[in-house]
Write a protein that binds this DNA or RNA. Structure first.
Lengths: 357, 357
DNA sequence: CCGAAAACTCAAAGCGCTTTGGCTTACCTT
DNA sequence: AAGGTAAGCCAAAGCGCTTTGAGTTTTCGG
């Protein structure tokens, strides 16, 4: 059943039927009801492609999905997507994923732009040498960035969390607790969020009069494996008297590995070592679920997804104009994994982690 | 730049240009090259909506994304998506996600069907009371199921792994190792995969002459929290002489929680308890990454995603005809978390898990 | 050199919708 | 009663592409 047939059946013109269906005012209420009822009864739904062609709107927002053997879509993405989906639903837009090999992303954006298959795109995982912002702007695609580039602003809209503030506050807490030897197991510093976080850490150290060299900083993709490996590297053969006592971790997955290393090395939290982790709020992996509940900096990536969707739709519809920079504060939630730095003398007892139970 | 303009520029008709671009044979090689070169140079890309309208093809495959406060998109989905994306790329199709509240899925499928916004859909997470197969078939949308319904076959195409065989083999291994008290911490048995797996477990037990009542079976969504909770329920106050010694776990996340409970209770693997887990092959959480490396049944959900995409495209193009039922075998990979059942006398020593290091 | 087949090219008709601009009626004003 | 206004409806013109059916040119065997 298409519009023409429906119009013939109703003995009305396509124009009137279309208008009735789309809520235009020039149609009598009685007629509108008749049309709606008939459409309902015959299961008429406008052909989305025809509508898109006629309106020039795609009714969907796009994302270029990096694929390739080295690029793992991580769990953060799902949570984010889930949030977007929630909002997309209420605005009746679809999400369109265009897979592209990492090295040929820009091509994918060009294709999207030229073929007008989406109304706007969102960019995530901002990198230090971010090319996409300029590209997408040149292509004239409405867009919204999740995260931001390194330079203060280049006049684009974004939503980001206050990564620097979060890690600044977390570091300050460790310093206030008396920790003087810190380690930060960071995400990949090719990404700006990791750089911002590192800035937060060093700023707090500087403010506290602690030389930045005191920080053991390691950077790698955020997963269990790397967390374990880097923690082992850091602590396995370290002198208990000089090894770090305060650890910052970039993600829950990293921490999973770090905690495994701690267990294996017989290091107890928070007696031997304190740890603060960034928590993106995964429903399937919670800081309360660790044997020693984790102190975290928390910001829901899912909620961010919903907000991004909302704003992107507004941008597309011209509701939000001009570059808007939105930065969310991050909560610091203290749980059991942080405590005072071990006193010099008491440090380094090798005990079984179970002794604490 | 659109087709008309390009044609005018080239002083050719739209027909010829279109044909040249789409590889039809009726156009002279020299002309084709000239057209392709000009298209390239001017960055011409056909408007995807116009093309879709004209051809009736959407060039994308769809998925109804369940959203809502109780539905968490889990990490399995991302991995799967990632696999689909890899293949989608090579076939130049997009992935279109239509968010829908769990209770109103069917509506979303109807909308997809009527609006012809995708060429086909894939269904995943098959449930016991699966409604979608009949629905989608009635709607006339080409589809492919990931997993299968409970009834042997209703004449639809699917790709599934041999869940029953996997858990049968895993259970048999535990039985061969002398375990006689088994526990299975299963996923939600509203889903067929969980039912199939349970069937595998009970079949192995029956074959081995062990009454099915001996199995402690618990079912819940597969995450860390539930794994921990169910394992604690099962072992906290249990008599070491009668508690299960062999545990089957439905997912790596569940196992994360189970292992946490074991650690907390001072139970060692494999001396006190053996465990076998199903591994969907997440790049960020590997069975080798556990302190005691996990014995697993393994099947890559990512590879399944790629294959589903491939077949779905074939189905859409009429290459694959008739219902094809594809069932993948699952590997059983023995690592360190399985061992002989503890002898009656030796069982239940309460030791620190670190003693093993 | 001719005529038929092969090779190219084109105008125009859709695909199913939205939207412009105009045309009828019915209803008020003065 | 004439003129004006608003309400309600419609025909037709796109949106940018593919594809049909037909026309024109080239090629080539006889």
């Amino acid at each position: 059943m298409n519009l023409k047939q429906l119009a013939e059946y109703l003995e009305l013109s396509q124009t009137t039927v279309s208008r009735a269906l789309n809520g235009y005012p020039e149609v009598r209420e009685k007629t509108r009801r008749r049309v709606l009822e008939a459409a309902q009864r015959h299961g008429y739904k406008p052909n989305s492609n025809a509508r898109k062609l006629a309106t020039g709107k795609a009714g969907s927002i796009g994302y270029v999905l990096p694929v390739g053997r080295n690029v793992d879509l991580d769990p953060h993405f799902v949570e984010f997507l889930s949030g977007m989906g929630e909002h997309a639903l209420s605005r009746e837009v679809d999400l369109s994923l265009t897979p592209a090999p990492y090295e040929r992303e820009s091509e994918a954006y060009s294709r999207i732009a030229a073929s007008r298959s989406v109304d706007g795109v969102y960019l995530s995982s901002m990198r230090n040498d971010e090319q996409r912002i300029a590209l997408v702007r040149d292509l004239g695609i409405p867009f919204l960035a999740h995260g931001r580039a390194l330079e203060p602003s280049q006049g684009y809209s974004f939503l980001d969390i206050d990564n620097e503030g979060a890690f600044h506050d977390a570091t300050r807490l460790l310093l206030q607790l008396g920790h003087t030897r810190l380690a930060y197991i960071n995400g990949d510093t090719d990404y700006t969020f990791a750089v911002h976080r590192l800035n937060g850490v060093t700023r707090a150290m500087t403010e506290h009069g602690l030389p930045v060299e005191r920080l053991a900083h390691h950077s790698a993709a955020m997963n269990e494996e790397n967390g374990y490996r880097l923690a082992m590297d850091l602590f396995r053969d370290a002198d208990p008297a000089t090894r770090p006592t305060g650890v910052l971790s970039a993600s829950m997955f990293t921490t999973l590995g770090i905690v495994r290393a701690f267990n294996q090395l017989g290091m107890r939290m928070p007696d031997d070592v304190s740890i603060i982790t960034h928590d993106d709020v995964f429903p399937f992996l919670k800081p309360e679920s660790f044997t020693v509940q984790l102190t975290t900096t928390r910001s829901s990536i899912r909620v961010a997804g919903a907000r991004i969707c909302e704003r992107l739709v507004d941008i597309i519809n011209g509701v939000e104009k001009g570059p808007v920079e939105e930065v969310w504060p991050v909560e610091l939630i203290v749980r059991a994994s942080t405590g005072p730095a071990p006193a010099e003398g008491k440090r380094g007892r090798r005990v079984s982690p179970q002794a604490a139970e």
